[in-house]
Structure formats: structure tokens, C-alpha cells
């Protein structure tokens, strides 16, 4: 009687372990399916010309996604330019004034911003930038992506700065170094790799964002460097071409998907390298 009870318990335990392993392993299936599909479909369209040419009209051979690659770099660069200084400054403020009322309020705001759906950021930027200007633009897209990057940068800056020992600040101040120089020349450089990780994570997060760009950067079949004009981007191009009825455009989209995933994976590899150092 007792023996069989123990036996039942052991069987239950084994069964549970088996189920846990099975469900966990199952997760790998969609990952492999997605990655292999993109690799298979995308690799065949990627040629040097594909990366360096503008899209060709439907029915014409050749053509590429040059405008989208440049557009994504342009948008992500602009977003970083806008969000990194403000995000870092806010992170510094919060870490230096942990108990102030403003820090408390900003902390809630960062949480709200992190939970804000990307489509809402798109609406907001449309209302703030596109509508007053009267047309879509790189600037609007950059601002939308910048807003999405902010919470990531603020949090990582604040969290890394909180880990810097207080004794470093004391050492610097005791040398007669003014407070602002202490923060900028001692504390921030000591936290450099953590902050850089945050920035890279932020870039990786927004590089694949599509929803905030729908009504801001909008897209453009040509190359455009004017900040006040619309511009293409990889995720947006994937969306437009994927939902089009043309087979050739689907191939563009697979190629663009592979390039985009490659870009994001490269970023996360760099991030890992930075953290390990």
C-alpha cells in the first residue's frame, strides 16, 4: 500500500519533468521554422545589387532595397541623437536625486512610456509633428522611434549608475573636483559599458518597429536625405511589400527581412560583447 503510494509519487514527478521538457523544447519549433524560412527565401534574393540598388518597378528585373537600408540607419541614428542625451540626463537626474518628488513621478512616467503601445506613439507623433508640418517626414519617424527608445535608455542609465560605488564620487569630490565634472568625468565613464548596452538595446528595439512609422516616416520608393521629407525603412518596406499582390515584391520583403534580422542580431551580439567586457 505504502510502497505503491511512493511509486505513484515518483511516476507523477517523472511525468511532470517530462511535460516541462516537452513544452520547453516545443518553443524551438516556431523559431526554427521562422528563421529557416527567412534564410531560405531571403538568401536567394540577396545579391550585391539588391543591397545597393533602389527598388525596380513591378515586372522589371533587378532592383534592391538600398533606400530602406539607408532609411533605417537614418531613422535609427536620428532617434538615438534625440533620445540618448535626454535619456542619459534623465537617468543621471533620477540616480542622483533618488528621493525627490520629480524622480518618483518620472519613474512612473518611464513605466507608462514602456507600456505604451507603439501604434499610440505613431498617433501622437502624427498629431504633434506630421499634422502641423502638413506632410510625412524622416524627422517625424525619428521622433517616434526616439520616444520608444527613451524608457530603455533612462532605465539602463539609472540602473547602471546606481551600481557605481559611492566611494568613487567621494574620491573625486575630495580632490576638489566640482560636482558636475565628477558626474561627467568619473561616474558616467565608469558606467559607460552599462549605458552603452542600454543604448544598443534601445536601437535593437526600435530598428524593427513598424507601427510608429506608418503615419510618420511613411515610406518612399526613392532615396531621400532631406529630414523634412518622407523616407523608406526596412520594417515598413517589409510590411508594404508583404501585403502587396506581387510575387517579386514578396521576394524583396523576404530579402529585407533577412537584412533586418541580421542587423538586429549583430546589434545584440555587440551588446553581449560590451557586457562581457
Amino acid at each position: 500500500m505504502k510502497k505503491s503510494a511512493i511509486g505513484a509519487r515518483i511516476i507523477k514527478d517523472r511525468l511532470f519533468t517530462g511535460i516541462i521538457f516537452a513544452f520547453s523544447a516545443a518553443l524551438i519549433i516556431p523559431l526554427i521554422m521562422i528563421l529557416s524560412h527567412i534564410l531560405q527565401k531571403g538568401a536567394s534574393s540577396i545579391t550585391p545589387a539588391f543591397l545597393t540598388h533602389l527598388p525596380a518597378p513591378v515586372g522589371e528585373a533587378g532592383g534592391g532595397i538600398y533606400n530602406a537600408i539607408i532609411g533605417t540607419l537614418y531613422l535609427v541614428g536620428l532617434a538615438s541623437l534625440l533620445s540618448v542625451p535626454i535619456g542619459m540626463a534623465t537617468g543621471i537626474y533620477m540616480s542622483e536625486n533618488k528621493n525627490s518628488k520629480l524622480s518618483y513621478f518620472v519613474r512612473i512616467c518611464v513605466e507608462v512610456l514602456q507600456g505604451t503601445p507603439s501604434i499610440v506613439v505613431g498617433i501622437i507623433t502624427y498629431l504633434w509633428v506630421v499634422k502641423p508640418m502638413g506632410h510625412f517626414s524622416v524627422l517625424a519617424g525619428g521622433i517616434a522611434l526616439g520616444i520608444m527608445m527613451l524608457p530603455v535608455i533612462i532605465r539602463s542609465t539609472e540602473e547602471t549608475l546606481n551600481l557605481i560605488p559611492h566611494s568613487l564620487k567621494e574620491a573625486s569630490l575630495a580632490l576638489g573636483v566640482p560636482y558636475y565634472r565628477t558626474i561627467l568625468k568619473v561616474i558616467v565613464p565608469s558606467a559607460f559599458s552599462g549605458i552603452l548596452t542600454g543604448i544598443l538595446l534601445g536601437v535593437a528595439r526600435v530598428a524593427g518597429e513598424t507601427a510608429p512609422l506608418l503615419f510618420t516616416a511613411f515610406g518612399n520608393p526613392f532615396i531621400n536625405y532631406n529630414i523634412l521629407k518622407p523616407m523608406a525603412s526596412l520594417p515598413l518596406m517589409i510590411f508594404t511589400y508583404a501585403t502587396s499582390p506581387y510575387e517579386e515584391w514578396h521576394n524583396y520583403a523576404w530579402g529585407a527581412s533577412l537584412v533586418l534580422i541580421g542587423f538586429i542580431l549583430a546589434l545584440s551580439l555587440i551588446t553581449k560583447g560590451v557586457t562581457r567586457r
Binding site: 560605488p165 566611494s167 568613487l168 574620491a171 580632490l175 576638489g176 573636483v177 568625468k185 568619473v186 565608469s190
Partner: peptide, 29 residues
């Protein structure tokens, strides 16, 4: 700058070399 201080636990600046640590009072200022 006229009254120097040394703390309980050694706290050299981790991002700087020995040389830079010694000269830190000038450089940081």
C-alpha cells in the same frame, strides 16, 4: 584642493591608469 583626503577603503578610479589616477586632480579639474 587644499585639504586632501584618503578613505577607509582604497578607491582608485577604475577607468584610469596609475598615471591618470595620480594626475586625476588636475585632469578632472
Amino acid at each position: 584642493r587644499k585639504i586632501g583626503m584618503v578613505f577607509q577603503r582604497p578607491n582608485p578610479f577604475p577607468t584610469m591608469s596609475i598615471f591618470e589616477n595620480v594626475i586625476a586632480g588636475y585632469r578632472l579639474n
